[in-house]
Design a protein around this nucleic acid. Structure first.
Lengths: 216, 216
DNA sequence: AGCCAGATCAACCCTTCGATTGATTCCCGG
DNA sequence: CCGGGAATCAATCGAAGGGTTGATCTGGCT
């Protein structure tokens, strides 16, 4: 890590937000935005390109929502597999427990909300560059203090049922499609409702989508 | 209206986004950010303050989401009542039909997505300052019914019902929430199913989401 | 071997949904 | 002024969804 200036790669699909992050980060002088990307693919390419000329980014600042393609979480995972030494800092509008957990387990070194002040953002980047995990107290408490912490994971079969649900299939149609009985479908559904903390199929689909358990 | 430079009031609860909007808007020279606000109340006060010294804003650029308090839509309505001559341009991450309709009927003179380019944003501000309604073709088509569209447009009430549906509410809960009878909810649902070409509520939500009729 | 979780099925009962038909009010536009 | 769409409500009926309990079978872990 260079001591003089930290090179940053910005990943966000909104030009306005990129401009804002750049303005905030560069305002102190110690940080420098080396490249910008608006998709996961562009981000990956940018890291490769920068490293190719010996100017690999010291921190990647990544929006959690990247429009159509892979999310910031997925991009972070990919980046972690190919470039495990590059710290990723996730910025997001929302600070839900599941989002923060997903970010951390995807290998992100930090999670900031977009309403963070300029100073907080710059400090967080510096921390991430130094290899520290950065979680604002407010979020850390919510994630760690929640105690409930571990939400039960859905089984593969349950996810499969969930995907059929999202298509608006009836229990009978799901049963026919998966070559099982309606009784079994009902059992799975009851398990799903319990695990998602939900009362009916429509809500289950909404929650599943929000948690990225199914595509949509 | 001054001819030289357009004075802009920025309203957004995220410092980073404000910095981005400011950077983009001021990059061309013709536009100048006269003040920033992070809440509806601050926005209102800022307009009063600027007008008090004869420097009333030519355009208000307002985020549709303003964190805790009143939304950008509500702020636009308030502003329209007290300062009807000030054009408001809404910027949002999402371009759902209901959001756009709400913005326009609240008196906004335009609706832009945050993934708009810098040029689009500057042009839209200029248009709004001149008193023109600004709606990107993509959104206009979605809201107005899509020209080639064989698809019938949903009424405001139907979209409202659809949003409740997406939350997994039962007919009874929707009825209670909207102060109507279950019979009415059922009637609306049948109309929605017909218009979306769908057979049940879960599928309706999926299709509505795919067509950006509701958020998600 | 013993245990446990996931997947499978069944029977029961009650609630909700969805289709249909028909009616009223309101408001907008031709 | 009249037609038509939107919104409101009612009544009915069969289909589907959802809660509960209990059971069997498999495979992996200890």
């Amino acid at each position: 890590m260079s001591d003089s200036r930290l090179r940053i790669l910005l990943v966000d699909d909104h030009p306005v937000v990129r401009a804002g992050l750049r303005a905030v980060l560069e305002s102190a002088g110690r940080l420098q935005v080396a490249a910008e990307a608006s998709t996961a693919a562009e981000a990956h390419a940018a890291v490769d390109r920068l490293q190719g000329r010996g100017e690999g980014p010291d921190v990647v600042v990544m929006d959690i929502e990247l429009g159509q393609g892979p999310s910031g979480i997925e991009a972070t995972e990919q980046l972690g597999r190919t470039h495990p030494q590059v710290p990723v800092l996730i910025v997001s509008t929302y600070g839900t427990v599941s989002d923060v957990q997903a970010a951390v387990s995807a290998g992100a070194l930090g999670y900031l909300l977009k309403d963070a002040s300029a100073q907080e953002l710059r400090d967080a980047v510096a921390q991430a560059a130094a290899g520290s995990l950065v979680l604002p107290a407010q979020l850390a408490r919510r994630v760690l203090g929640g105690g409930a912490g571990t939400e039960p994971a859905l089984s593969l079969r349950e996810i499969e049922i969930l995907e059929e649900l999202a298509l608006g299939r009836t229990n009978q149609q799901i049963a026919a499609g998966l070559f099982i009985s309606q009784a079994t479908v009902k059992t799975h559904l009851n398990h799903i409702f319990g695990k998602l903390g939900v009362g009916n199929r429509t809500e289950a689909v909404t929650v599943a989508r929000a948690r990225h358990l199914i595509r949509g």
